[in-house]
Amino acid sequence: MNDEYTPKIIGFLCNWCAYTGADLAGVSRIQITPSLRIIRVMCSGRIDPLFVLKGLLKGADGVMMMGCHPGDCHYQKGNYSARRRYVLLQKLFEDLGFESERIGLWWVSASEGPRYAQVSSEFSEEIKKLGPNPVREEIFI
C-alpha cells in the first residue's frame, strides 16, 4: 500500500446507459479508477441537486453524474431536465465560491464502456489535483 491520496468520488449513474456502460467496462476488463463510488439511479433526471449538495457537504471530494445522450433518454426527457439542474447547480456553486470543478455531468451510453473508464479516471485525476474537499475542515456546519 502506498500513501498516495485517493479522492472519494460519488457517481450517480443512470440505470439504462452509464450503469450498463460501467458493467461493460468491467466485463471488457478495462482498468477503472477505484475512487468512484457508484449509486444507481433510474434516470439522470432523478438526480436531485440536493443529493449532489449533500454528498459534497458530507465530505465527498467530487460528484459525477452520468446519463444517456440527449435524445436517447429511456423516459424521453429526463436527461434534459438533468442538464438544466446541473447548469443551475454549477452556477450556484460559482456564486457561492465553491469549486464547481468538483461536479460534472457526462453522457455515457450503454455501449460506451471505454468512455466510462476514460471520463471517470480523468475526473479522478482532476480531483486529485484539486486536493481534498475544503468542507472536510469545517466540522460544525
Binding site: 457561492l96 465560491g97 465553491f98 475544503p134 468542507v135 469545517e138 460544525f140 456546519i141
Partner: peptide
C-alpha cells in the same frame, strides 16, 4: 469572502 468558510 467566498466559499464554505465564509458561508459558515
Amino acid at each position: 469572502g467566498f466559499g464554505i468558510k465564509a458561508l459558515v
